[in-house]
């Protein structure tokens, strides 16, 4: 009885999460400039318009560049820092961890604006590099959290055994640490890439003339006649991310099976 009402609640909650998101694909196939009911017919012309929009493609390219560089850098920084706090007993490690996690507790608008002021004071131009720096602030704490959990999750005796058997530090890293860390590294890359790819406010202040995809979308929202095309873009992002996430989970599960067989 109680389980039934909980199940019912779960489906109602799922509907609350999905209905607004389904607005994107529904209106992206609607044959009208106006985003209103009733629907007026099926069309794929908004997707055609999207494919032919060079400003969108340029912004997409910028976002991919920023996202990939941010993901690689924040995962590398996170990997080194996570190793330092989990494998060494360092004085002040807690304070360092707190400092690195600080951006989680500061509103994005303050992060973006303070960087904007610093660049201005140093006479540096706004650019995609500045956006990457801002995104590192947001992404490194995420990467660190994921990677620390992974470091704590595997048996450090394996590393010691490798050292005892005569491997040097570098070989131990490549043959023991890296393979065991791989799921964490992939999770960190994915999480930081998605965060950077979707980040608007920091990029809004730091990108200058080079728009990223969220900035492009923000610009389009002012033009009612461009909206169906923007919704088509949202539907495409949704579809691609769903496929990516399912693939990532599939790969992760493969890893789990291998380990079970190996053991």
């Amino acid at each position: 009885m109680k389980n039934k009402s909980l199940l019912l609640y779960a489906f109602a909650y799922l509907a609350f999460l999905y209905v607004p998101v389904l607005v994107l694909p529904v209106f992206s196939f609607n044959d009208s400039q106006f985003i209103a009911f009733p629907l007026s017919g099926f069309t794929t012309r908004w997707y055609g318009a999207l494919a032919g929009d060079s400003a969108m493609q340029h912004a997409l390219g910028n976002s991919l560049k920023v996202g990939i560089v941010t993901a690689l850098l924040s995962t590398m920084l996170g990997l080194a820092a996570a190793r330092a706090v989990t494998r060494y007993r360092l004085r002040g490690a807690g304070a360092a961890l707190g400092f690195i996690s600080l951006p989680l507790f500061i509103p994005d608008i303050v992060l973006g604006l303070s960087l904007l002021m610093l660049l201005g004071a140093m006479g540096l131009p706004l650019s995609l590099a500045a956006v990457v720096l801002g995104h590192l602030l947001v992404c490194v704490p995420f990467a660190l959290t994921v990677l620390i959990a992974r470091f704590e999750g595997f048996d450090r005796n394996l590393e010691e055994a490798s050292a005892d058997l005569g491997e040097d530090g570098w070989m131990t890293f490549w043959r023991i640490t890296a393979p065991l860390m791989l799921p964490g590294i992939i999770a960190s890359l994915l999480l930081t890439f998605i965060t950077s790819f979707d980040e608007f406010l920091v990029a809004f202040f730091l990108s200058g003339t080079e728009a990223t995809l969220p900035i492009y979308i923000w610009g389009q929202l002012r033009f009612p006649e461009r909206l169906p095309m923007v919704l088509a873009l949202g539907a495409v992002i949704l579809a691609v991310s769903v496929v990516l996430v399912i693939c990532a989970e599939y790969v992760r599960n493969l890893g789990v099976k291998d380990r079970v067989v190996g053991a």
Binding site: P20, V21, P214, L233, G234, L238, V242
Partner: peptide
């Protein structure tokens, strides 16, 4: 539960 969050924040708000 997480799929709805895999699209643009701006567009989720705009929806």
């Amino acid at each position: 539960l997480t799929i709805p969050f895999w699209t643009s924040y701006l567009l989720r708000v705009f929806a």
